[in-house]
Design a protein around this nucleic acid. Sequence first.
DNA 1: TCGATTTTGTGAATGCCTTCACAAGGGCGT
DNA 2: ACGCCCTTGTGAAGGCATTCACAAAATCGA
Lengths: 260, 260
Amino acid sequence: MTAQRDELNAVSDTADQRVVPGTERTIPEATVARLAIYLRALTGLAERGIGTVSSDSLATAAGVNSAKLRKDLSHLGSYGVRGVGYDVALLTDQIRSTLGLNENRAVALIGLGHLGQALAGYAGFASRGFRISALIDADPAMVGDRLRGLIIQHVDALEQVVRSENIAIAVIAVPVNAAQDVCDRLVAAGVTSILNFAPTVLNVPSHVDVRKVDLAAELQILSFHDNRKGARQDFAPASVARVGAVGSRLTTTDSMVAAT
Amino acid sequence: MTAQRDELNAVSDTADQRVVPGTERTIPEATVARLAIYLRALTGLAERGIGTVSSDSLATAAGVNSAKLRKDLSHLGSYGVRGVGYDVALLTDQIRSTLGLNENRAVALIGLGHLGQALAGYAGFASRGFRISALIDADPAMVGDRLRGLIIQHVDALEQVVRSENIAIAVIAVPVNAAQDVCDRLVAAGVTSILNFAPTVLNVPSHVDVRKVDLAAELQILSFHDNRKGARQDFAPASVARVGAVGSRLTTTDSMVAAT
DNA sequence: TCGATTTTGTGAATGCCTTCACAAGGGCGT
DNA sequence: ACGCCCTTGTGAAGGCATTCACAAAATCGA
Ligand SMILES: NC(=O)c1ccc[n+]([C@@H]2O[C@H](COP(=O)([O-])OP(=O)(O)OC[C@H]3O[C@@H](n4cnc5c(N)ncnc54)[C@H](O)[C@@H]3O)[C@@H](O)[C@H]2O)c1
Ligand SMILES: NC(=O)c1ccc[n+]([C@@H]2O[C@H](COP(=O)([O-])OP(=O)(O)OC[C@H]3O[C@@H](n4cnc5c(N)ncnc54)[C@H](O)[C@@H]3O)[C@@H](O)[C@H]2O)c1
């Protein structure tokens, strides 16, 4: 769901990487999505000076159940100590390394309208392993402006900018009718991962990963459940706390997913 | 990947709603998340004057496979015609009704910083069944300002505003350290569905639904796959199109998910 | 009227994810 | 040193979700 969910995995991973000693193993998609959540929970614990956590407390902090957490972590290897728990710093490193966050990753942001400007200023990217390295827009009135220390480049220079900075990840925040075009150019320039805010299905070759964020869809899913709740109670007073109707949910990237 | 996924369903739905004739049936969570996508695809078709679609074309437009689409739609009832396809207008209505979008739903938006202002101006909400009915912030410098036809209210009046407008859905766009507090107040005021942008796990009673949008997590999931791709190719020239490495993905609210 | 053709709706099969439940492992107190 | 107690790591079971594959339905042309 949440989120959107995942699909079509064209990989025929069977059994050939058993030989590798280190971090090479197939990790379930659902697990990957949760690693990011664990990472944030761990950061919070570290800030509070906590050096060790049990699967139970970490699971609570991350909002999942502890069996799931342990199973998830077991895919990375065996980094817990029985009877004790997990070392916060060590586990943090392991997850960061699994997610490929050891050095900051360069990100291009295309489209600096309302949403794009909010994203450009979002501190949560930098603090979680990403560096916005290119700002691109089509509006001549905007090009050349400095925003957060970067100069906005014209979309005509997209390929050149992406190539010269060796950018693999891009965020699309342009109007829906420009999205596929921008996407094609990004892919041609070598981008292999795209986060898409435009409400449209992007067509990409199979080596490119697309995740989308669809806010209206999120609200519609909430609407569905809300609708059900209301129906089931046939109009009890609105302010009465209703108990045990439907378990609450959180998205995961699960915001869920679809494939091409 | 997506997106995140969903969890803990506390409902003990067994077999008591079979009796109801109409739209009452248990619909899988994964299906609900996709209905929103189908709805957008249908809107696009209608705009292009198309009156009928086969499951194949609609599936393509929505980026899923046709068997899945048909199975999904079969949960709503039997609205297709064999040998012909689905009537675009009829199917649109059915999905809208299933999602509870027959009349616009009122939404409160809390936090009008960078992100909140972008959201307040987002046309995609209004066009897809939602009406932002309340803008709320804590900053006195902002309160009283008019934004998109609405006056920004002080957070002290939150309960009053939510109750008087009978708002069931809220969007949280406040800093992370204010999020739980705002959430508690919303719940106390009768809100039962929350879309959360603050990067934190919200604690809510079981009758409240929370979905979260976590942009850093989305990027981290992309980073994971990107990392894998790179490793597997041991540094082929960056601009060469690589074929068949990993199937591309789109989120679903699936944005993955966790439960409380 | 009837058969050819198209496309839906759905049982059955498969696979992925979650949850259970417990044996194995490790620290710590005595 | 030893045994107690706590917590991990993981087989096994159960539940959802996706995909397959085909019979049933409906149109259309002859
Ligand atoms: N505003 C929101 O809160 C919000 C929420 C969810 C999704 N979205 C989606 O995000 C996208 C952007 O939304 P917005 O509100 O920021 O729109 P906006 O109109 O404010 O900004 C769009 C920006 O993209 C630029 N642009 C247009 N064509 C371009 C091109 N070919 N190449 C590069 N830049 C180009 C424009 O110059 C403009 O600066 C839209 O697709 C919208 O549906 C927005
Ligand atoms: N900016 C982004 O692109 C972005 C992206 C993803 C997530 N987020 C998250 O969204 C939230 C908002 O981000 P932002 O960039 O808009 O921050 P911001 O600081 O620009 O805006 C926060 C707003 O919330 C208001 N506020 C603070 N406490 C409040 C309270 N108790 N009640 C009501 N209003 C209150 C502030 O007055 C301010 O207007 C943050 O949690 C951030 O992590 C932001």
